[in-house]
Design a protein around this nucleic acid. Structure first.
Lengths: 221, 221
DNA sequence: GTGCTCATGTAAGGCGTTACATGATTAT
DNA sequence: ATAATCATGTAACGCCTTACATGAGCAC
C-alpha cells in the first residue's frame, strides 16, 4: 500500500483494468472470486486469465494503491485474502473507462490458420476441423445464452447482459461462417474435380507475385 | 543445421508453425518477406507478429533443422538473409497440419470489455466506442475483400482466398453486431429513462448472487 | 481415509512487444 | 542533400502459461 504513482495509471494493461473493473462495485473479493467472474462473463469475448496471473495482478494493483487487502478468517473458513478497491482505484478505473481509446480487437483463430494453409492437409481434414469448430461454437452459444438469461434477473447486471447477448450472436455467427466454409470447400472440390486443385498440388512459388499484386493497390491504414 | 530433435516438432507454438507453413512452398524468403505475407492474409484472422519476433522464430527454426539460410548478395542488393524450408521442416509442418487438433480460437475484444463494464462510462461513451469499431470493421472488410479478389487471380492461392472470404464475412458480421449493440443501448436507455438504469447507478454488490445463480445450472464443458 | 474441491501461491520459462541501433537503397 | 523506405537485428521487459506445491474443508 504505497505508490500512488499517477503515471502508472495510464500504462496498465487491459487485463489489469479488467480486474480492477471487476472490483469496481465496492465489494470485497478473493482472487478465486475474481476468476469466477471472468469465467462467468468475460471469457466469451476476452478470454480468461489463469489463477496465478490474477493473484499476481492483485498484488500489483495493491502495490499501486488501487486496491487494499485483508485476510479473512470469519467466513467459514479457509484462509483467503480479500481485496477491495480504493478511492484512487475507483477514480483510475473510471478514467480508464472514459478516456482511453479501445485497442483494436485481437483474434487468433487457429482454425482459419489451418484453412489458409489448407494445401498442407486437404479439404477432408479441414472439414473435420471445421465440424469440431461448429460444435465448439454451439457449445459457447448455449452457455452464453444461458448466462445472458441469468443476467436478466438482476438489474445491476444490465451491461453484462448486453455483452453476453452480443456473445450469443457472435457464436451463432461463428457457427454459420464455419458451415459456409464447409460448403465453399465442397464446391471448390467439385470445381477442381480430382485434377490438381486445392489439396493435391504442392502449390509452389506464390510469393513472387505478392509484392507486385498486393502492395500497390489497396491498404489505407 | 543441427538438432533434428523429433520431440520439439510437437511442441512448437502456433506462430512458429505459421511461419514454417509460409515457407512451405519451397521458396526462399527473407524475414521481411515473411512479414509481408502475414500482413497480406494472416493478420485478418491470426494477428501479425512483429519483425523482431519473426527474425527470432526463423533463427529458432534453423536451430531445429527445419529451415536453412544463406546470405543474399546477388539480388540488388542490401544484405538480406534468405530462408528455405528443409525436408525435415516440410515433413514436420505437414504432420502439424494433419495430426494436430486446432486450439480453440482466442479473442480479446476490448470494445466488448468496455461494454461489459459500461456502468463505469455510460451509454453515450459506449456508443462512441462502438461507432469507432464499426469504422474499424468496415475498413477491415474493405481490405479483406480486396485481398480476396487479388487471391482469385492465382490458382495456388485458393485456400488463402477461402480464408480471406471468411474474413470478409467475419468483419461484415462484426459490423452488424456493433450496430445491433448500439440499438440495444438506445432501447435500454429508453426503457430505464433517466431513472437509475445503466449508466447512472454505481451498480453495487452483485457478486453475492453469482455463486448461487451461475455455478449450479449450466456449463457442461 | 480417500479423493475432490476450495484456495493460494511460487518458479521457470516462453511468447510477444516496444524501443533502440544501424546501414544501405531509393525517391524528392 | 535529405528524407523515406528497405532490411536486419539486439536488449529489455512485461504478459501469460504450465507445472508444481501446499494445506484445509467436505463428501462418500
Amino acid at each position: 500500500m504505497a505508490d500512488e504513482d499517477p503515471a502508472a495509471k495510464a500504462t496498465l494493461a487491459a487485463t489489469s483494468w479488467a480486474i480492477l473493473a471487476i472490483l469496481s462495485p465496492e465489494r470485497e473479493l478473493s482472487g478465486y472470486d475474481v476468476k469466477k467472474v471472468t469465467e462467468w462473463s468475460i471469457r466469451y469475448f476476452y478470454w480468461s486469465p489463469q489463477f496465478s496471473q490474477i493473484y499476481a495482478e492483485l498484488k500489483k494493483l495493491e502495490k499501486l494503491g488501487l486496491v487494499t487487502s485483508r485476510m479473512d478468517h470469519d467466513n467459514g473458513a479457509r484462509n483467503r485474502r480479500l481485496y477491495k478497491i480504493t478511492a484512487a482505484g475507483l477514480e483510475a478505473v473510471t478514467r480508464w473507462a472514459n478516456d482511453t481509446p479501445a485497442e483494436p480487437p485481437m483474434l487468433k483463430h487457429s482454425v482459419l490458420l489451418r484453412v489458409a494453409f489448407g494445401n498442407l492437409a486437404g479439404p477432408e481434414k479441414l472439414k473435420d476441423l471445421l465440424q469440431e469448430h461448429v460444435e465448439f461454437a454451439e457449445d459457447m452459444l448455449r452457455q452464453a445464452t444461458h448466462d445472458a438469461q441469468v443476467a436478466e434477473t438482476v438489474d445491476a447486471w444490465a451491461y453484462s447482459r448486453l455483452a453476453l447477448q452480443w456473445a450469443s450472436r457472435y457464436y451463432a455467427s461463428e457457427r454459420e461462417l464455419a458451415l459456409q466454409m464447409m460448403k465453399d470447400l465442397d464446391e471448390a472440390e467439385e470445381a477442381f474435380g480430382r485434377s490438381g486443385g486445392p489439396g493435391s498440388a504442392p502449390a509452389p512459388r506464390y510469393w513472387d507475385e505478392i509484392g507486385e499484386k498486393v502492395n500497390v493497390e489497396g491498404k489505407q491504414a
